[in-house]
Simulated scan of single mutants.
Amino acid sequence: MAKGKYQEWRTPDKLTLLQAWARNGLTDEQIASNIGISRDTLYTWKKKYPDISDTLKRGKEIVDIEVENALLKRALGYEYEEVTTGLVWDKKTNDYKERVTKTVKKQVAPDVTAAIFWLKNRKPDGIDGWRDKKDVSVAANISNPFDGITTEEIKKLIDDA
């Protein structure tokens, strides 16, 4: 690693670039490769320089929120307008012009898989929990009625019965 390379990456322009890479979904390994350092060096920088660590976190948070919003939208379903365009003859110019020919309101039905995924991750516990695997523990105080009795005494009890 070139001496002082980290200083270059702490400038506003380079921090913006780091944030963009994180926002675009690059892993720490890919970001380190883009910088020209090892992943371990990037981890060291993140520990040593809060501005680098915070910048990467902010970039990743933006994408996480966008994905979260998209998943929720898909889970709930949504409406959108589909716009169709086509060439229409314009008498004034004696030429074809592209114009909106049809607008249709469409609906995307809620996605059950997205809803289940959302609930399993957002509401795993509680009375109405959505966790697949439930940890159920049963505690009981069971006493052995034959505790302290020898085998011979048990045989004698059986014979007497």
Rank of each mutant, 00 (worst) to 15 (best):
R74N: 09
D111M: 11
E82W: 02
I35V: 12
I62L: 12
E66S: 12
D28Y: 14
Y49D: 05
T151D: 04
W89H: 13
T85S: 07
Q107V: 13
Y80F: 15
T151W: 07
P50L: 13
V88T: 05
G129R: 13
E153S: 13
S33G: 13
D128P: 13
W21A: 05
N144R: 02
V63K: 11
K60R: 09
G4N: 15
P50S: 14
F117N: 09
K123S: 15
R99P: 03
A139N: 06
R10V: 02
E61V: 12
E79Q: 14
N144M: 04
R58Y: 08
K73S: 06
E29Y: 10
K97N: 07
D64V: 02
S137V: 14
D111T: 12
K97W: 02
K47T: 03
W118C: 12
N34M: 08
S143V: 14
L26I: 01
R10Y: 03
W130A: 09
D28L: 08
K3A: 11
D135A: 15
G59L: 01
G86E: 04
R122S: 15
A139P: 06
L71K: 03
S53L: 05
L119R: 07
F117G: 11
E68S: 15
G126F: 09
K46N: 07
I37A: 06
E81C: 01
K102S: 07
L56H: 02
R99N: 00
G4L: 06
Y49K: 03
R122G: 13
P50M: 07
K91W: 03
L42S: 00
K134G: 09
R99D: 00
A32M: 06
I65R: 10
A161S: 10
L26R: 02
G4H: 07
D147T: 05
Y78G: 00
K120R: 13
V112T: 01
R10A: 04
A2M: 08
K46C: 13
I149G: 03
P145T: 01
L87E: 06
S143P: 04
T44N: 11
I116Y: 10
I142M: 10
E68N: 14
T101C: 04
D159M: 10
W21I: 02
A75G: 04
E66R: 11
A109Y: 10
E152A: 14
L87K: 12
I35H: 01
A32E: 04
K156A: 14
P12C: 09
R131H: 09
E8A: 15
K48H: 12
A2L: 14
L15H: 05
N144C: 03
T101N: 00
P124E: 06
Q7R: 15
N141K: 15
R10W: 01
Y6L: 08
Q19W: 07
I65Y: 10
V88A: 08
A70M: 07
D64H: 10
T84Y: 09
D125N: 15
V112R: 08
G86M: 00
E82G: 03
K123Y: 13
G129N: 09
T93E: 01
V108G: 02
